[in-house]
Amino acid sequence: MATPSIPAGGHSDPTRRDFLMVATGSLAAVGAAATAWPFINNLNPAADTLALASVEVNVSPIQVGQAITVNWRGQPLFIRHRTAQEIKEADAVPLSELRDPQTDNSRVTDLAKKVRPEWLIMVGVCTHLGCVPLGNKPGQPKGPYGGWFCPCHGSAYDTSGRIRVGPAPKNLVIPPYLFTSDTIVKVG
């Protein structure tokens, strides 16, 4: 409504007035933009939410061949203590066979670039449409590639959590994590 373009009909000093109008309009626009920011920023994750954005997990109780599920940022986090056989299988797959080519090593490296092939840590959310794949608990179907199997639309993941068959486009996501000691891993 208050556009600064005003006809100057009959006023004493139109140039000075136009300049003032433009300056005022610009400053008001800056003010409006600066005012909008707190309203937008208000909807960002709050400090109490951010404080839970990283979790520390003690992995020492997880036996070889077992896996646990941890709640991380409201999503399931899969932590699997892989057997030597599983690691070997994952390593042996040629990249050309993969829909989303990633080496197994690149998926078991923490933020300090240390490779721990026995620990596979992934977000347990199918990259197709967000279901939680089966296979993390004993007795659940692991699918044709011995990893995870999504019951919603039949995506199957291998022992490195890589997509092998089904509609999912990507491998299961590896979150940023860091082993702060041999038994404590900090995720997020």
Binding site: P38, N41, A46, A47, D48
Partner: peptide, 13 residues
């Protein structure tokens, strides 16, 4: 109080 303390610029709003 959470709005005041934890929400980004919640105190301002």
């Amino acid at each position: 109080e959470r709005i005041d303390r934890d929400v980004p610029q919640g105190w301002l709003i």
